[in-house]
Nucleic acid binder design. Sequence first.
DNA 1: AATGAATGAGCTTTCATTCAT
DNA 2: GATGAATGAAAGCTCATTCAT
Lengths: 190, 190, 190, 190
Amino acid sequence: MARGRKVNSNGERSKQLLREKAIELFSTKGYYQTKISDIVKAANVTQPTFYLYFESKDSLFLDLNEQFQTNLYQNIENVAIQHNSQMPQVLHSIFEYFQENPLLTKIGLYQSEQSHTVKEKLVEILEQIIRKQEQLSDHLDPHIIAECLVGSIERVTLTLLFAKHKTVEELVDQLVSIYYNQTNKVAFLV
Amino acid sequence: MARGRKVNSNGERSKQLLREKAIELFSTKGYYQTKISDIVKAANVTQPTFYLYFESKDSLFLDLNEQFQTNLYQNIENVAIQHNSQMPQVLHSIFEYFQENPLLTKIGLYQSEQSHTVKEKLVEILEQIIRKQEQLSDHLDPHIIAECLVGSIERVTLTLLFAKHKTVEELVDQLVSIYYNQTNKVAFLV
Amino acid sequence: MARGRKVNSNGERSKQLLREKAIELFSTKGYYQTKISDIVKAANVTQPTFYLYFESKDSLFLDLNEQFQTNLYQNIENVAIQHNSQMPQVLHSIFEYFQENPLLTKIGLYQSEQSHTVKEKLVEILEQIIRKQEQLSDHLDPHIIAECLVGSIERVTLTLLFAKHKTVEELVDQLVSIYYNQTNKVAFLV
Amino acid sequence: MARGRKVNSNGERSKQLLREKAIELFSTKGYYQTKISDIVKAANVTQPTFYLYFESKDSLFLDLNEQFQTNLYQNIENVAIQHNSQMPQVLHSIFEYFQENPLLTKIGLYQSEQSHTVKEKLVEILEQIIRKQEQLSDHLDPHIIAECLVGSIERVTLTLLFAKHKTVEELVDQLVSIYYNQTNKVAFLV
DNA sequence: AATGAATGAGCTTTCATTCAT
DNA sequence: GATGAATGAAAGCTCATTCAT
């Protein structure tokens, strides 16, 4: 193949394509088993083209994580403002975001080292919501509940939501049933 | 220059040492960021010695995972038999096993690709226990509960148990409180 | 996205600018550490523009060297004709040329492989002038003297002239004192 | 070719060989045009072997420079102590060192960025010797003389000593004649 | 039982250069 | 006259693994 510009080539498209392929590969095979050569092969360009648009493999990965986190927080915040930080709605927004960005979620929630940060942040957010509830059995520690809840979210997202065995609504419903009392549960299912 | 067997050397000891150092390193830095050279440096032997005892980096890692899983299942089974598969006791045995093998757990539960298998297996085990309970609100799906429970276990093990913020007993207590009703909870804490 | 000719653009100007920036960069960082991308960045044009005016990185570098050499020889020759090849005047012309073209001199005298040629040529020129002098101690070899002289010129240009610690006149004076003028010399050397 | 240790292989020899080939290549082709692949090809080993003995291309080059400088200074100092810092003897020791290490000298005196340091140091040393001479014509600046002298040394080493057109003794003799008076010259050549 | 020495295969990254517009 | 987009070719370096002793 000759050197230089391809017919009908377009930088923004190439960058986008590379990004998409990178997301696909990172999310499936993980960071270390995804080689730049895999990414560019999938995007049908050569290796230098990758470096035309991204600083390095590492920085691209970090970018993706940042994107994942930023959007997630934004989403949650929007919902929190609209719905007065009601747990069911917040959970719904989280699952929905994951469902709409499964690949990015796989990267940001299960593969990166940054995933710790996200989960900690989620714990923090959910703990606050829990604390706002009245009628907390004083036997229960809100922090532990929040940790458990985040663990549950993490797991069911992977095994039930991504596997399409359950819908967002079903998951929220079940989680609320487990973590909240019956009355709440009913209230939520409007 | 000097080659051959070290004074005071002992095959079994070298193997054991290598295994220990590998566990330490894999659990801290992960598979890909742990080099054979790191392991042998830590064990104070040379690279060929590693291959004297292990087939490859990969096979050692798999070995460790298998060890983790086998022992875990054994532990659970023992308790199950003794206590008629009571949830609190089973949870207790799981946490206890994790607490006693934190490094192996980090590998087998958080780092390897085999971790999926363990978690699935745990879900299966716990789901069966849950199904044995009478009085399950028919609104709740035992499978989902089991998935949630495994997620919670996974998370609190990392953030509360390993970090020594909570004891095994506290964690079991809280988990039972969340996933079971209050009466059970009390019953368990004999 | 926007391609094509810039407003206010002008071929000769771009070429000149590229040449200047190349000289600056080559003289400061050297050939291998100067990237085409550095040059075009400094000149605020794109890489293909570079190739519009120069065949290659290498050919530009050779060009610059040729320019350096041609002008230098011209300068010397002019003075030689005017002043009957008197050493002080010739030295003066050399230093003056260097002073007026410090960047080009750095390239042509210290960085390129062609620098050998220039120095050989200088040796040749100066040797001829030396041979014309009467009263040469027959102990001294004119060729060696010329080589020494060129070495001295090379060094003081860099460390004294370019560093602005000495003027052209001072340098000529000192060099002549060392390499010529018996009285001074004798006084100096017991 | 099979992997693993070669028959009759010997680490120290390989390292030495690599070092020698590196010196040859660096001195002939320069740092940037000498590739690791060139060096290992010349030493008949593979690239990883290079990294078995040297940290990087850069660090090897720096090493060589340091070796050059350290030995040079040592040599000069020895002579200075023995001969009360007499110029002819010091010059002799310098040239002799260069003659015995032509390749290293090419690297350390002409190719590296560290060469500036060496030359400055040489200027300093020689300037001190010059200043010790009484009866310095107050017209002449010892610093400039030292700079000139170093320039001369640098040049004749390359064009006369390495090219084997002149011996160390001849060069010292001529330099002393130029920079010192006739009588000294004779005295030195015992 | 263990080591010194070496390598195959591959990785990320860089750079001068060129096509299509 | 000039640019956006792309590439061929290679460079330095790393790592799991293996042979000879």
